[in-house]
Simulated scan of single mutants.
Amino acid sequence: MGRPVTLFTGQWADLPFETMCEKALEFGYDGLELCTWGDHMEIDKADQAYCDARKETLAKYDLQLFAISTHLVGQCVCDRIDERHQSILPDYLWGDGDPEGVRQRAAAEIIKTGKVAKMLGLDTVIGFTGSSIWHMLYSFPAVSQEMIDKGYADFAKRWTPILDEYQKMGVKFALEVHPTEIAFDIATARRALKAVNYHPAFGFNYDPSHLGYQGVDYVKFIYEFSDRIFHVHMKDAYWSEHPMDIGVFGGHTEFGDNRRYWNFRSLGRGKIDFENIIRALNDIKYQGPLSVEWEDSGMNRDAGAVEACDFVRYSDFDPSDVAFDDAMQK
């Protein structure tokens, strides 16, 4: 199959950039999806010379680059800022911690990230948006639709100027649909698109692992948003068929606790139906990379990265160019 298999470096940001390149080559990947934390892609340092040097290092290891990811900074554009965000932001973005200042600096950094993508010769930035209304997920005390509308209006107000700049640059922003974001299932993805008036620079990074354990039809998502899937993460998750001590909300426990109803798993070891995902991606003619986001708290990550690469290559296949029964016709 022609789709390249890449590795998202977000879970490997403790390793230096070149070490990550060495490992990706050893693991068998075609390329990387570079995160913008650690030293993998440093937005504050990224002038054209820096970007050219990154591309030269990737070429040295015969690795391609299709996208960069800004999940941590993107989260802070719309979020209710507190001490959690200080732990994921560099000091120059956190500043004095004033919430509105953090949000505005994060928005400016997202625009700069689009410019860096352009310098790298890319057209896709992946990330989170944050959400001012995630804390209203469970409606008690009762949450009115007017309150939810205000959350989507806040998202539109903060992200439309960013998306306008991306459109000027010829770059797209792909939101990873995910709990804690303004879009976390099919219904909220529809609402997010409507909020930004179906902006051409706004779409999705498709990741089924965040949908499956919620009970969301993650294959339908592909068909529903076929023209808005700008990038694909390959990640697996397991959820129990039986009642557990800890439900779908996680019970204030850590990932990897086997009393939980669900956990992320190495590819092929969970419950995500990748067979039908590949068939759906073929149907919508998605030709971008399949980017492994490897997360499994119970497994060695190097071993997991190797088997995940092999699993994706095995799972992917070309669509047929003939009907199987054509040979039976006169």
Rank of each mutant, 00 (worst) to 15 (best):
M1S: 14
P4Y: 04
T6A: 06
T6P: 03
L7D: 02
F17C: 01
F17W: 06
T19M: 09
C21F: 04
E22G: 11
A24T: 11
L25G: 12
Y29V: 04
L34I: 09
T36R: 05
G38C: 12
M41F: 04
I43W: 09
I43C: 09
K45W: 10
A46M: 08
D47P: 08
C51V: 09
R54G: 00
E56W: 00
T57A: 08
L58P: 04
Q64H: 13
L65A: 10
A67D: 07
A67M: 10
A67V: 13
I68C: 10
S69V: 03
H71E: 10
L72R: 11
C76A: 13
C78N: 15
E83C: 02
H85Y: 12
H85E: 12
H85W: 04
I88E: 02
I88M: 12
D91K: 15
Y92A: 05
L93W: 07
W94S: 05
W94A: 07
G95H: 09
P99K: 09
E100G: 02
A106E: 05
E109W: 06
E109I: 01
E109C: 14
I111H: 08
T113P: 10
V116F: 08
K118E: 10
K118I: 12
G121M: 09
L122K: 06
V125N: 01
G127T: 01
S131V: 02
A142H: 09
V143M: 01
Q145P: 02
Q145L: 15
E146G: 08
D149T: 06
G151D: 00
G151F: 03
Y152H: 08
A153G: 08
K157A: 15
R158E: 10
R158S: 11
W159G: 07
T160K: 15
P161V: 04
L163N: 04
D164R: 06
D164G: 12
Q167H: 13
K168A: 15
G170L: 13
V171F: 05
F173Q: 07
A174K: 02
E181G: 01
A183V: 08
I186K: 01
T188I: 08
A192Q: 11
L193I: 12
A195P: 12
N197H: 13
N197C: 02
Y198D: 15
H199I: 10
A201N: 05
Y206I: 02
Y206D: 01
D207G: 12
D207N: 15
P208M: 10
S209Y: 04
S209T: 11
L211Q: 12
Y213L: 01
Y213W: 14
Q214P: 01
Y218L: 07
Y223R: 14
E224S: 09
F225E: 03
D227K: 15
K235A: 08
D236C: 05
H242P: 00
M244P: 02
E254T: 09
N258P: 12
R260L: 11
R260T: 02
R265F: 04
G268H: 03
R269L: 11
K271E: 14
I272C: 09
I272E: 00
F274D: 00
I278S: 05
Y286F: 14
Q287A: 14
P289Q: 11
S291W: 02
E293A: 06
M299T: 10
N300P: 01
A303Q: 12
A305P: 00
D310M: 05
F311Y: 15
V312C: 06
D316R: 04
F317Q: 09
S320W: 10
D321H: 08
D326P: 00
